[in-house]
């Protein structure tokens, strides 16, 4: 019994690891959409909500107003309100916009949350020093899925 459980778990982990798509390997269609889960797993909207407001994570409300997140102070005005976004955008569009919004909106100010190459003078986080090694994406594959799951709860 025990050995079977171990076997199953290991098998699941292997599948998950294989299914995660690295930032440089993400495929965008001509509209900037990303068809498959970046982590190979569904997202968790409760975690996604935290990422939306945390300054060291997505900090999405730095630029976007979201009425459902009113309890967290200071929403920015740089991007459009995300109220009712689930009525306007599908999961594949949202995933693409989060991973690299420049594939959807050319020249946008919105940062790419799942991109690690192609930057000018990349730094070591917020130290002002040069990046010491390969960059980590701003959000992990699973965190992107979590935020997508949260955005899909924003119906009118």
């Amino acid at each position: 019994m025990k050995s079977i459980t171990v076997f199953v778990c290991a098998g699941m982990m292997a599948t998950a690891a294989m299914a995660e798509i690295a930032p440089d390997d993400v495929t965008y269609d001509e509209y900037g959409e990303v068809m498959v889960s970046l982590s190979g797993q569904p997202g968790d909207p409760v975690v996604g909500k935290e990422i939306m407001v945390e300054r060291g994570k997505g900090n999405c409300i730095a630029c976007h107003q979201v009425t459902a997140l009113e309890e967290y102070p200071f929403h920015g005005e740089v991007g459009p309100s995300l109220d009712g976004i689930a009525e306007r955008r599908t999961d594949v569009e949202l995933r693409g916009i989060l991973a690299n919004p420049k594939m959807t909106y050319e020249g946008t100010i919105m940062p790419a949350f799942y991109r690690t190459s192609g930057f000018t003078r990349p730094g070591d986080e917020f130290t002002g020093e040069a990046a010491a090694g390969p960059l980590a994406p701003l959000l992990t594959a699973q965190e992107i899925e979590d935020v997508v799951a949260y955005l899909l709860t924003l119906t009118d």
Binding site: R55, N59, I61, G76, I109, P111
Partner: peptide, 21 residues
């Protein structure tokens, strides 16, 4: 510049008058 890929103009020309957080 940087991983946020922002220029001075993105904030101070395109968005002055707007709140950012």
């Amino acid at each position: 510049t940087g991983q946020l890929d922002l220029s001075c103009a993105n904030c101070h020309e395109d968005n002055y008058g707007n709140n950012i957080r």
